[in-house]
Design a protein around this nucleic acid. Structure first.
Lengths: 152, 152
DNA sequence: CTGTGTGCAAAGGCTTTGCATAGAC
DNA sequence: GTCTATGCAAAGCCTTTGCACACAG
């Protein structure tokens, strides 16, 4: 077992996508992918940049952006914006996750909790039935207090 | 019947809020409120600015922003961001609408359709039951093709 | 070696802010 | 007359882009 290179689906996907598109796997991309994959929150580009700094102080913010946008185009990452925040994007590694997961955001500690909402299929169906057309995807964000913050 | 001043709940609310906060009803605010209230789409600040131009070419973009942000603070307007758009806000007059309405956005014509989703209450309850905490609000956006665009 | 990726610095898009003047109450 | 709102221009914040050099394949 190689402890130094744990299995990282995001990195694996990225590597495949890269080679099949004539791209190159650089140290910077590897680092960004690794940090992103182990981030449980949904970091902004700036936050990712900060976390990468210790391991490679020379790595530039624009490289972080370029990598994220490329991952986004390849469908390996989603960018989101949450209410009440400045005009900044947060990045959500999709990797092997269920495609249609949703988010709860605590307005006190800003924690983001992901969850599935199978009931949303019904909501989509109802909309289609009433309005016609096709619903392709849904983005649901719940806002409130998480269990920890509510109990204080 | 006074045809020149149709009943405008947004404007009425705004007028009340203004006077009770020591604010002043100016020609600019009246204009912006009127145009916003009759906008069926969810205009950006820039779009609102364009629509206001013919009636008052001197009115400044920053006045539009200041008015919108003030309305937002007062809870008379919501600002939103939709996926796939530049980093710009769209403004949604709340006025006398149901508080918890949601949005469908057509990826072809960009039209926005509002709808109610009573089933979301169940989604909220399910989340609270499983994770604890309190859910205060929900923002749902469906993406797809509207009836018109789907039939082409 | 060839061509993609990176660092750096500058520019871009949307939004906010400081300040002097205009205008509501 | 007093104090809030506006217009204008400048700044701010997040993000993207141009260019020369570095480096993966």
């Amino acid at each position: 077992m190689n402890v130094k290179t744990p299995i990282n689906p995001l990195l694996q996907h990225a590597a495949q996508t890269l080679t099949s598109h004539g791209g190159r796997m650089t140290a910077q991309r590897r680092l960004i992918l690794a940090v992103l994959a182990e981030s449980q929150d949904h970091p902004t580009a700036e936050e990712l940049y900060q976390r990468v700094q210790p391991k490679n102080p020379a790595l530039n913010l624009s490289t972080v952006y370029r990598t994220l946008r490329w991952l986004e185009q390849e469908g390996l990452v989603n960018s989101r914006h949450f209410e009440g925040e400045p005009h900044q994007d947060r990045f959500d590694p999709v990797a092997d996750q269920r495609p249609d997961h949703h988010h709860f955001r605590c307005r006190a500690c800003n924690r983001i909790i992901e969850f599935d909402a199978p009931l949303l299929d019904k909501v989509k169906q109802t909309f289609s039935r009433q309005q016609g057309g096709q619903v392709e995807s849904a983005a649901l964000v719940l806002y409130g207090l998480c269990a920890d913050c509510a109990s204080k």
